[in-house]
Design a protein around this nucleic acid. Structure first.
Length: 225
DNA sequence: GCGACAG
DNA sequence: ATCTTGTCGC
């Protein structure tokens, strides 16, 4: 059973990752065809003690915004590579509680199984909310891939320790690719399909862009107060 | 021991 | 992640 009791030390966090990684299911539900896809993101100032989380739900195939929610929460611990989830998920969970809609799929800003212990923020979030989840990161945490062609949708498997853990995929011609990996209740192929389905020709999927815009607006709003 | 290292 | 204007390439 997954709880929202987040550890604060690296030792405890490592133990949680190693315990929960066994719960991850790398297979989508039968007849999986997401209609509502959510983007989740967190924003914060340099040495802030509070952070802003936001979730934006888009409908397919219109990419129209159908729901969104935000939350403010304390920053639990500093950023440590491999432990992003313990820093950002508490705030995201608070925003999730404010969300009325139940999305069919979640796209996180960070890795899924393309992680040192195969348990990135998308895996944790998917388990926590019980919804198919995807990691879509702007840079690599672990793994390597073959060079990509310059064209939109050029792709190459992301391999770590002889294992394909994700896909490097260019969502906009001649622009840096993003790195997609399964979180929970999904496989790599489906994860890539979902990301492409919410791609509108920019570097990042629309879900991520909208969520990013939302949390930045929230952060700046509470600045001018 | 030396780098690498999601956001 | 965030601090930041103009500027270069597609």
């Amino acid at each position: 059973m997954t709880t929202r009791d987040f550890p604060t030390t690296i030792a405890e966090a490592t133990a949680v990752q190693q315990r929960l990684r066994a719960e991850v299911v790398l297979q989508p539900p039968p007849n999986f065809a997401p209609r509502l896809v959510a983007g989740l993101d967190v924003s914060m100032d340099r040495d802030a003690t509070e952070c802003f989380a936001g979730i934006v739900v888009l409908a397919l195939p219109s990419l129209e915004v159908v729901d969104q929610a935000t939350a403010v929460a304390p920053v639990p611990m500093p950023y440590v590579p491999g432990f992003l989830a313990f820093r950002e998920l508490p705030a995201v969970a608070a925003a999730w509680d404010q969300l009325r809609t139940r999305p069919d799929a979640l796209i996180f800003d960070g890795q899924g199984i393309a992680h040192p212990r195969r348990f990135g923020i998308a895996c944790y979030g998917g388990l926590l909310f019980g919804v198919p989840s995807i990691g879509c990161a702007k840079s690599i945490l672990v793994g390597t891939h073959a060079p990509l062609g310059p064209e939109r949708l050029a792709r190459a498997p992301l391999v770590h320790r002889r294992e394909t853990v994700g896909m490097a995929i260019r969502l906009r011609e001649s622009v840096h690719p993003v790195y997609v990996s399964p979180g929970h209740l999904i496989d790599l192929e489906t994860a890539v399909d979902v990301v492409v389905s919410v791609s509108a020709g920019f570097r990042e999927p629309e879900t991520t862009r909208r969520a990013h815009r939302l949390v930045n607006a929230e952060r700046r709003a509470r600045k001018g107060e």
